[in-house]
Design a protein around this nucleic acid. Sequence first.
DNA 1: TTTTTTAATGACAGCGCTGTTTTTTGGAAA
DNA 2: TTTCCAAAAAACAGCGCTGTCATTAAAAAA
Lengths: 336, 336
Amino acid sequence: MKKVTIMDVARQAGVSMKSVSRVINNEASVRPDLKAKVDKAVAELGYRPNFAARALAAGRSFFLGILFDNPSPGYTLQILNGAYAACRAAGFQLVIESVDTSASDIRETMDGLLASARLDGMVVTPPACDNAAVIAALDARKLPYVLLAPIRDNPEVASVRSNDAAAVHDLVRHLWGLGHRRFGLIDGPATHGASQWRREAFVAALEERGHAPSDIVTATGEFTFSSGIGAGLQIMRAPQPPTAIFAENDDMAAGVFAAAAQLGVKIPDDLSVVGFDDSWIARSVWPELTTMRQPIFEMAEEAVRLLLDFWKTSEVGKKTFDCTLVTRGSTAPPRR
Amino acid sequence: MKKVTIMDVARQAGVSMKSVSRVINNEASVRPDLKAKVDKAVAELGYRPNFAARALAAGRSFFLGILFDNPSPGYTLQILNGAYAACRAAGFQLVIESVDTSASDIRETMDGLLASARLDGMVVTPPACDNAAVIAALDARKLPYVLLAPIRDNPEVASVRSNDAAAVHDLVRHLWGLGHRRFGLIDGPATHGASQWRREAFVAALEERGHAPSDIVTATGEFTFSSGIGAGLQIMRAPQPPTAIFAENDDMAAGVFAAAAQLGVKIPDDLSVVGFDDSWIARSVWPELTTMRQPIFEMAEEAVRLLLDFWKTSEVGKKTFDCTLVTRGSTAPPRR
DNA sequence: TTTTTTAATGACAGCGCTGTTTTTTGGAAA
DNA sequence: TTTCCAAAAAACAGCGCTGTCATTAAAAAA
């Protein structure tokens, strides 16, 4: 199994090296019969282009990076899978990169990363996408990048996001339709874009239905399971405990389950719980969690596509995805 | 910010291109003063070697692949992080690859993957590491690889594994020490190496203490949360329900929590539960799960190191890691 | 000191491909 | 039929580095 080069293909097909290159790269101005000859030779020889040589000659690497940090495993892995699928489809390879955005030497780390990697572009996932040092390093290198769910929408930067506000309105409609009238909210950390959007939408949706913000029993968590327990206990011990709790992500919603177990509160009979993300934990509690599914896989795919588009056309792409309500066992009409 | 090449460094340092190359690659036979000159020039110019050019000239890519499939998110992500850390330390890049080992065209997928990627080696994670088609494709390409926790121990293949049997013995010692004498076991799928090792060790440890295998209330799951619920219900409804259940992974153990909630069984008062892996879900149940921590991160790091060693010395490395008992709230002395 | 051996450095080709430039080709217009 | 012109194909250089060999400097032996 020795290496087959573009020269071998050219000889076999009786054409020039460059013509083979044209066919391989789907360039215009290739007559069908030539293409056929080349395709035949490629198939016969089992030729595959050499990435390194292409990279060196063309000045691009055919590698895309994906930057992530301190992630919820289920979320991150879905992103990785989506980005990987899109890369394969486009003939690219996916290189993983990771920074600790809570460290102090982010800029140095990033510079080192970028200098040697020679990537064609980078997909930046939260929370790295909201980190100034990360973005600065990317800009300094003039490396094209796409942001996944960034807090601020910079019109000059390609990004993919989900429509959190609309999703939360759907969630409220669902709970309201079941008959719930007293609500609890577990808010996320202030530093996190998602918690801001979700809180505001929740409050707005209830205001539309005549609730004052002060009617909502609110506690704050950290987007983690254990913080959800504390927040859940706090809310359920309120003087007028709600019949439904919205936790701004699934991990905290799962924490509410643990809190409910401690207090002997039955889900969904005594309390309905909804989360957000449809991450893996949503199906790892009992009853399974009603939540909003974010199309994370598709969002990551789209991010790669936007990155590749940007490479070709220099156009800054934007795309927003809708979420879907996934109704499972954790919501039911209130008892009274 | 234009590109700095090895020639620029050579000129700046007043030495030959090749000498710079020697310094960059830490080759022997370089005098300290020359190295100093080159290092200085490299620093001044901010030079970083070009991966593509190196790859082309040296016939190796400085890219390592990691193959994974259908993974438990927490487990996979830990592997990824460990492999990534070791790659960075060695000046390599990590490319992710994924196959669906339940598909029928594994061989074609793998061949396509390997042909274009031009990797220097591959870390193969379970369950792909036990798939014949995957291994055959790797062998055909003569691509060096390391197996992570493979079922069969082929002496000609580098591998990293954990000492499951010893770990299970520790687990049994813990439960026995608490006073438990009636045990339940949730076995994993037969196709999975880990379930075999863990079951056998559990039975053996109890036999040492005078139990017959038939004394153990056993049910079978699929390493998933939902299968753990079913298995848990089955065991708890047995005529003589056990006071402690060992689930062969954390997901199934979490399922037991859900089953216990349904039956009104209190953990750990009425029932102790232990899992295996110390995956993310172990801390996302309440009370938190007592389990065996596998050093997954370190195992993945070691896998990369063995791969690199193999590249240099052609020596087949092997390493086995010990697990650590993590005692959390899900185990306690039995009530009666 | 001179000669031999060894270590350190340099010169040069070429890895496999693509961008650019030049040549050829086929077909429409004259 | 010949001329002209675009489109298609070929020629060729070179991307940035490392392997191989030739050369020089240093160390050891004579």
